[in-house]
Structure formats: structure tokens, C-alpha cells
Amino acid sequence: MAKKRILITGAAGFLGSHLCDRFIKEDFHVIGMDNLITGELRNIEHLFHLENFEFYHHDVSKFVHIPGKLDYILHFASPASPIDYLKIPIQTLKVGSLGTHNLLGLAKAKHARILVASTSEVYGDPIVSPQSEEYWGNVNPIGPRGVYDEAKRFQEAMTMAYHTFHKLETRIVRIFNTYGPRMRLNDGRVLPAFIGQALRGEDLTVFGDGSQTRSFCYVDDQVDGIYRLLFSDYTQPVNIGNPDEITIKQFGEEIIKLTGTKQKLVYHDLPVDDPKQRRPDISKARAILGWEPKVNRTEGLKITYAYFNSLPEKEILHKDFTYFNKH
């Protein structure tokens, strides 16, 4: 019996590479695609020798062609950190719009089911907490984060249009803060930023007063939620994240304890439109997918810290705080 074939875009990225691993493990033929604008080949090089894996270096914002049968598509191609999407705002908008359109068209042509990666950023700076899928969000479309937030909101609208008009098999996952090995140490997100500063012996930078909250989901849990959603019959958006909420100040203190650094927290102005609270309502994921996170933050952080600590010294020492300097 022929193996099921799945295209994973953003395959060399943090989440995309873990999804490649999962579907290889599940005995799929995996076709990875990435333009490497933020992805890194080292995340998937361990798969290159496998007969069930192939890789295309390609930008999905351009026409996408995959020869042969295709059963599933996972669209995970997009910059996902503030530093990235402020450096490359046009590409971020294009991959969420043109890229999504191209992949929906490919799914239609191949009669494939497609799951698109949306984000908790569609909720913007929320005025309700926790955020359920019924909340429409509080987004500034012309602010610095708008290029990412609105690209994802458009992506959801386009996906649902293909579902309702073309009867395409679609799924939408709204991903909340996820962490684990293969994150980029200097991508501007709070967890790698804190660990990077701790490894360099620097004080940990807290933006605002540290009262803003985040909820961190370990990557293996996130991948399992996405896997379950793809094979479910549910076509509306589903939050996948960990509802265990923590303030940034408390999180910084956790990182100091974990890393044993002697540094302290220092406070800077809050970036424009930075969300004050982020906590998923995962009632739907529990009820529909039978999913909830299993890896607690203490365990997940130990694994993640060990990964960052194993990186070459030049990566640890490299810093890029473009986002925070400008905003």
C-alpha cells in the first residue's frame, strides 16, 4: 500500500521541522518546502538520507507545483517572531496571503486536505481572558505587529472561503506560545531572549512592568494537537496551547533559577501593541480532539535550556534586538 504523501511548508523552521519528524515517524512520505528566509537546514538535515523525505527550496508566495499525488498539506511557512516580521514585513504579508492562496489552490487541484497555521496573534491585545475561538480580537492593522496579525486573519478568511465555496477539506489551528529545541536563540521572543541573556551573563530584559502574561506550550504537545486536528472532522479554528498562565516577571525569575545566573531583571518600555495577556481557552481542543498539554513547564524548560546551551558560542553571543530598539 502506497504511503500517504504530505507537503509541509516552513519545513526548516522550528515547528515545521518537528512536524516533519512526527509525520516521518507516522510512516508518511514527507515533502518539505522552505525558502530558508528564517528556517535553517540543520533542523531537518537528519532527514535528508531517508527515502520518505524530500525537500524543495522554494518560496510558496510564488506558484507551487508538486508532482504526483498529494493527500495532505500543512501550511506553516511564515516568519513568526517580531524581529523577523519587522525586518521582512512585505514577505510576511505575502506568505500569509499569496502563499496561502497558492497552497489552497494546490490542495483543490490535488483533492488534498489542508491545515493552515494561524496564531493567537489574531486576538491582538485581547480585552477578554482566556481567549476562546469565538473572540474576534483587538488588532491594530497599521501598527508594527499588523503585518503578521492581519496576514494571519486574512489567511483564516481565505481558508474558510475555500472551504465554503469550493468545499475544500480545511483545518485551522490557532497556535499559542510554543517553545522547545530548534527555536532560534535571538528571534526576539521572550523565552529564547531570556535564555540567551542568561547564557551571556547579561541582565534579563523585561519590557513594561512585567505584569503581562504568556502561556507556554512545549513543542511535542503542540505537534500532537496539530496532528489530532488534521485528522479530525472539525473545520472551525481550534486553539492549541497551554492554559498555564505566568507573568513575564515570574517567568524571568524562573529562567534565572533554571540557569543559575547571577543576573537580575531590568525593565524597559513596552513595545507598541505588545499583548498584555495571552492565555488560551482549550475547551474545544479537549472536547473535540481529546487533547491537552502533558509536558509541564519545568520539564520542558530543562530540555530547551540544554538545547540552547549546546549551541556554538558564536550563536549564543550574537544579539539582534532590532525590534526592541525601534519599537
Rank of each mutant, 00 (worst) to 15 (best):
S118I: 10
S118D: 08
T119M: 06
T119N: 13
S120C: 15
E121C: 14
V122T: 13
V122M: 08
Y123V: 07
Y123A: 15
G124S: 11
P126Q: 13
I127W: 00
I127R: 13
V128R: 03
V128H: 02
V128T: 12
S129F: 06
P130L: 12
P130A: 12
Q131D: 01
Q131E: 14
Q131P: 00
S132Y: 09
S132F: 07
S132R: 07
E134N: 15
E134L: 12
Y135H: 06
W136E: 08
G137L: 08
G137Q: 11
N138H: 11
N138S: 14
V139L: 05
V139P: 11
V139D: 02
N140I: 02
N140T: 14
N140M: 10
I142Y: 14
I142L: 14
I142C: 07
G143D: 09
G143N: 06
P144V: 09
R145N: 11
G146K: 06
D149A: 14
D149L: 06
D149C: 13
E150L: 12
A151F: 03
A151Y: 05
A151C: 03
F154E: 07
F154N: 06
Q155K: 07
Q155R: 04
Q155S: 15
Q155L: 08
E156C: 05
E156T: 06
E156D: 06
M158R: 03
T159I: 06
T159K: 01
H163N: 13
H163Q: 14
H163W: 11
T164C: 03
F165D: 13
H166K: 11
H166G: 00
K167D: 12
L168F: 00
E169F: 02
T170L: 05
T170F: 00
R171T: 01
R171N: 10
I172Y: 01
V173F: 02
R174A: 08
I175W: 01
I175C: 02
F176D: 01
N177Q: 10
N177I: 03
T178G: 11
T178H: 04
T178V: 14
Y179F: 15
G180D: 04
G180T: 04
P181L: 02
R182C: 00
R182V: 01
R182M: 06
M183I: 03
M183A: 04
M183R: 12
R184I: 09
L185N: 04
L185H: 03
N186P: 13
N186Y: 04
N186Q: 13
N186A: 15
D187K: 02
D187T: 05
D187E: 08
D187G: 10
D187M: 03
G188H: 05
R189N: 09
R189Q: 14
R189Y: 11
R189S: 09
L191M: 15
L191Y: 07
L191C: 12
L191S: 05
P192T: 04
A193I: 11
F194G: 01
I195L: 11
I195H: 09
I195E: 04
G196P: 00
Q197E: 15
Q197F: 01
L199P: 12
R200A: 10
G201P: 04
G201M: 05
G201N: 05
E202P: 00
E202V: 06
D203I: 04
L204I: 12
T205V: 14
V206W: 02
V206G: 08
